[in-house]
Amino acid sequence: MIKLLTSADAMLYREIRLEALAAHPEAYSSTLAREQGKPLAWFEERLTTSDVFGAYCAQELVGVAGFRRVDGAKTEHKAVLWGIYVRPQARKSGTGRRLADAVAAHAATRVEQLQLAVVSENEAALRLYAAVGFVEYGREVKALKQDGRYYDEILMALHFGGQGS
């Protein structure tokens, strides 16, 4: 089951978010050190300022994915898919696809374009996003630096309509 998380889900969200940052530090622009010290209220606020979807299996939160609209009069037609993570026990079950599809369906009624950035070495994520319909439009070289190592990010977009799509 996929559902939109609310501030009441902040404790569960905090737990899975910190797990994601610990397990795959190269995949996120934030760090475990930055977020693990944040109070629960910080995670509650995050769930009210972004639309974060949760995937549940037998009452357990096993995956998350965020949607955030881009601010600005000339960029409000775009949004970002961010922070997607699926716990190891739920991988290869379609959970990631259901989360990405849920965010895309949500975005399709709100914006013309959904964008994301994914570490170039994350082949499973690249396959998932391509299957959902995302198309690569660029590459940011040395986008992230983790423990002295650089990671490129592939920039991808999913277009829903409007002029120029």
Results as ranks from 00 to 15, higher is better:
Tyr13Trp: 10
Ile16Asn: 05
Ile16Gly: 08
Glu44Val: 00
Ala20Trp: 01
Glu45Trp: 01
Ala23Thr: 10
Leu40Gln: 11
Ala22Met: 12
Glu45Asp: 14
Glu44Gly: 02
Glu44Ala: 09
Ser29Tyr: 06
Tyr28Ile: 00
Ala20Phe: 00
Tyr13Asn: 00
Ala23Pro: 06
Gln36Asn: 14
Trp42Gln: 09
Glu15Tyr: 10
Glu45Tyr: 00
Leu18Gln: 10
Phe43Arg: 00
Trp42Ala: 14
Leu21Ala: 05
Leu12Val: 02
Glu19Tyr: 01
Ala33Pro: 04
Pro25Asn: 13
Gln36Ile: 03
Glu26Asp: 14
Leu21Ile: 04
Ile16Tyr: 08
Gly37Thr: 13
Leu40Phe: 02
Gln36Cys: 12
Gln36Met: 13
Ala23Cys: 08
Arg14Asp: 02
Thr31Cys: 05
His24Pro: 00
Leu32His: 14
Gln36Lys: 12
Phe43Ala: 03
Glu44Ser: 01
Glu35Lys: 03
Trp42Cys: 02
Gln36Leu: 04
Leu12Asp: 15
Arg14Ser: 03
Arg17Lys: 13
Met11Tyr: 10
Tyr13Lys: 02
Leu12Arg: 10
Glu15Ser: 15
Ala41Asn: 09
Ala41Phe: 05
Leu40Pro: 06
Glu45Val: 06
Tyr28Trp: 06
Ser30Thr: 14
Glu19Asn: 04
His24Trp: 09
Arg14Lys: 15
Leu32Ser: 06
Pro39Lys: 07
Trp42Leu: 03
Arg17Asn: 07
Glu15Cys: 09
Leu40Asn: 12
Tyr28Pro: 01
Thr31Glu: 12
Ala41Ile: 12
Ala23Asn: 12
Ala22Cys: 08
Leu32Cys: 06
Pro25Trp: 05
Lys38Tyr: 11
Pro25Asp: 08
Pro25Glu: 07
Ala41Arg: 08
Thr31Trp: 07
Leu32Val: 09
Leu32Ile: 10
Arg14Leu: 01
Arg34Gly: 09
Glu19Ser: 09
Gly37Ile: 12
Gln36Tyr: 11
Ala23Ser: 15
Pro25Met: 07
Glu26Gln: 15
Glu44Thr: 00
His24Asp: 03
Glu35Ile: 07
Gly37Leu: 09
Lys38Glu: 15
Trp42Asp: 12
Ser29Arg: 14
Trp42Met: 03
Glu35His: 11
Leu18Ile: 13
Tyr13Ser: 01
Tyr28Lys: 02
Glu44Arg: 04
Ser30Asn: 07
Glu15Met: 07
Ala22Gln: 13
Met11Arg: 14
